[in-house]
Design a protein around this nucleic acid. Structure first.
Lengths: 120, 120
DNA sequence: GGCAATACTGACGTTTTTGTCACTGTGATT
DNA sequence: AATCACAGTGACAAAAACGTCAGTATTGCC
């Protein structure tokens, strides 16, 4: 996840992808914005209560720089900022979906394993 | 990527998945083993020349602990060890594929962007 | 005047992850 | 007796990621 594509010219597709979506909370953020869009910062925080605000904002900034999400600022008081997935960001849906699906399989796999052990 | 599922009882599917495949080189290793299997350590190193051996071994160990890959040791000299994806590991193929596909799209997206800028 | 709401930012420290270096063991080969 | 091949391990250092705390700005409300 470390080397960002802007600092390296040659990359395989997967490395390029991972340099953009590999951050600690990025898949989670993208997942939120696939559930509901647009979302305000405070709403994303409700979806992801484990992420502290500072961290969340950093990850949002990075996603914005990479043009995965867009950030709309409304000049009102109190401030209102809305985040949503860009076109290329929306195309990450199969990635998020396949990760969730595999997670489901893996959970079942772990449970079956646990059962086998307890039977022995 | 940080909190491993063994240290936390409740997890969404994606968090569970990411706790297992979120390591720096894990997707890359799984990608290798989807291309060719089984592979010896030295062969994986040829696929991934940027990863130092120590790091590679650590990531392999973690994948093995999580039962994503299997490790076969042949008691010969010089030693021979073969790695391959387990059944649940093989099921990660859609994840790797969708990441690669999106990376391709994103690369095209970046190139188009660059062209637009140079035309302006 | 003081406080609330929202969306931040800066400085700083901690933790995690990643990388480097030197080293191990064994049998065959030169 | 030295060297090679292969697959490691241990101790440590560096870098990156992550988290915490305090503070900013604006306007309206009590």
């Amino acid at each position: 996840m470390v080397i960002h594509y802007k600092e390296k010219s040659f990359f395989t597709s997967k490395d390029l992808a991972l340099s953009v979506i590999g951050g600690r909370w990025k898949i989670a953020i993208i997942w939120c914005l696939l559930q509901q869009s647009p979302l305000r910062l405070s709403e994303i925080q409700k979806y992801l209560p484990d992420v502290n605000q500072r961290m969340l904002i950093r990850q949002l900034r990075e996603l914005e720089e990479d043009q995965i999400i867009t950030r709309m600022v409304y000049p009102v008081v109190p401030p209102k900022v809305e985040y949503q997935l860009s076109e290329i960001g929306l195309q990450l849906k199969p990635v998020v979906t396949s990760i969730c699906d595999w997670g489901d399989h893996f959970r079942i796999f772990l449970e079956e394993n646990a059962n086998k052990k307890s039977v022995q």
